[in-house]
Write a protein that binds this DNA or RNA. Structure first.
Lengths: 336, 336
DNA sequence: ATCGTCGTCTAGATCGTTCTAGTCGAACCA
DNA sequence: TGGTTCGACTAGAACGATCTAGACGACGAT
């Protein structure tokens, strides 16, 4: 049985250093107004006692926590990459990140409350599913940045990837390889699915090609079913909603003996972990998660520190070429 | 430009309801000592104002946050499943969960500090890599529960899955199918790798079989390399360190035209998302993440609320039979 | 000598809660 | 009637930080 020891307070440090609480506070915050010699003395005492400021008390008084709330979905591996990058950027700007996941039985609203309770000064929400009204409601209390979703009303910031441009790049890439029959497996009800589907339709028409949309979803299972549906009238190329979907599509082709990219080219979206696996080597549209995350953190910090109005940041995705796309009607190329 | 509105305080509610702060506090906490009639009156006023208790102030005074800190690794999909389950159990016991990820450039120590700063009353760490000394150091301040790692010293709780039993079940399953040449692709430096490797050796010997360990790792790439190494002298069955490794192994077999389970049986570990995919159907040892998570949360809460000493919880994993294991020397069975 | 200024430091109020120690009035009992 | 008990309520002190206002010496200018 261990005695849980009380954590040292400002007062303890002050006593040890023989100065007042206020001075210790000044030193710990790095604020001006302390002589260099005493500053050292205080820092020494603090280190000795293992002092760390109590963020609750600090916040209570100053309403500054230097804490950013980040909401992600635990079931989306792509979100994990964003989380990583956000940590890095936040710490570069002197902020910490508090995480909250949306999961089965844990809606976004709940995640938001938790973050607000621990004192987050701004909220970054990855692909929020809340209505713009609900988002606006929270945005009145605290800056809110929507990541990977654009149509979020005027009160909340958004940092997103240009879905239209991504799809344009995808269609152009495949068209330039000579493909004329390019299908799209959409993301069903997933965020961004509508935008990408419409962009696909528009871009196909612009190239004088006829768009074929097959209903899909954001995961392997729906991808596989779509892949099977596709086989009834096999196109020469397919653009998947995301990499997981692409994986399912490819699997269905593999089961049917259809070879990639000889018989059909497959293009993913997200450039996720899966796409990079050496035995997958999926060509994919990269949204550049680290950059997006950094941009979102930057906006959040800027909003917190300054008084600039909400705005939009849109980044253009780019193509990452691997081995699942090739010339239309090409002979089989070594796939591995 | 939105004016960020001040959130209402106890005092505001008190004024509105015409009572004292203290009484509002009593009502909001659901503590005894308020007449039913005034209780209603106060609740009404609070709802009207949209009052939510400021958790920082509350905590500052009461030193209770009802907040559990959970540390996971953003790169491990298996951890995500645990996070989900932990949320459910925590909320059932009236606690909230604060998440903190370890990622590249963000060590465990950092994650721990963040959680302590936001006021976590206990720490649950998934597969901690800290030394037992460092863990003990934190355990002096706050209850610490180690999840999926057992050798953590006497001061910290541990909730883990019985690796030995898991491997025993794996070997027994394969042996009962008539396999005599059963290889093991280990997890390299990953947590639990040593335990499973040694369990494998012991169990093989117990069955009078000769153990063959191939060095591997916790992901697809290392699994694939191990699979290639395996092909020099192909066994009839292989036990992978985890599902991701198994995926890599199977991929290497597929590339070489070795069919599963006709030519070789493959058994995974974790029963993760991947294993359940309809086109994978990987037989796997399940550690039952939801149960483990619930047990960890329970211990954390018990430690926080009571004064019981640190202890160990060990759960026995079980076999989930799918389509990648079959009789030794069996003819090819329909794999899909 | 007096005054203002500057750098360093401190006392005390304050943030929004909870907790302790009451006060107050009504009911009960002898 | 007077005392005790009890339920409902409140005043004021915490909690651990930050912030404001001002004290104190030293120094330079008048």
């Amino acid at each position: 049985m261990t005695e849980l020891q009380r954590r040292p307070t400002l007062m303890d440090v002050a006593k040890a250093a023989g100065v007042s609480r206020a001075l210790v506070s000044i030193v710990m915050r790095g604020a001006p107004g302390a002589a260099e010699s005493t500053r050292q003395k205080v820092l020494e005492a603090a280190r000795e006692l293992g002092y760390r400021a109590d963020s609750r008390a600090r916040l209570l008084r100053s309403s500054r926590t230097r804490l950013l709330g980040l909401i992600f979905s635990s079931s989306q591996p792509f979100h994990a990459e964003i989380v990583d990058a956000a940590y890095a950027e936040a710490s570069a700007r002197g902020y910490e990140i508090a995480l909250s996941a949306v999961a089965a039985g844990r809606p976004e609203a709940r995640a938001i409350e938790t973050l607000l309770d621990v004192g987050a000064e701004a909220l970054i929400i990855i692909a929020p599913t809340l209505s713009t009204e609900e988002l606006a409601l929270h945005a009145r209390r605290v800056p809110v940045v929507s990541l990977l979703r654009e149509d979020v009303g005027g009160l909340v910031d958004s940092v997103s990837s240009d879905d239209y441009a991504g799809i344009r790049i995808a269609v152009e890439h495949l068209a330039s390889l000579g493909h004329r029959q390019i299908a799209h497996v959409d993301g069903g009800t997933a965020v961004s699915s509508d935008q990408r589907r419409e962009a696909y339709r528009a871009e196909m028409l612009r190239h004088g090609l006829v768009p074929v949309v097959v209903p899909g979803g954001p995961d392997e299972e729906t991808g596989m079913r779509a892949g099977q549906a596709l086989q009834a009238d096999l196109p020469t190329a397919v653009i998947a909603f995301n990499d997981r979907s692409a994986l399912g599509i490819m699997e269905s082709f593999r089961a049917a003996g259809i070879s990639i990219p000889a018989d059909i080219s497959v293009l993913g979206y997200d450039d996720s972990h899966f796409a990079r696996l050496s035995y997958v080597q999926l060509s994919s549209i990269s949204q550049d998660a680290p950059l997006l995350a950094a941009a979102a953190v930057d906006r959040a910090v800027d909003r917190v520190e300054g008084t600039l109005p909400p705005g939009r940041v849109v980044r253009t995705p780019h193509l990452v070429l691997r081995k699942t796309t090739g010339h239309a009607g090409a002979q089989k190329v070594d796939q591995n």
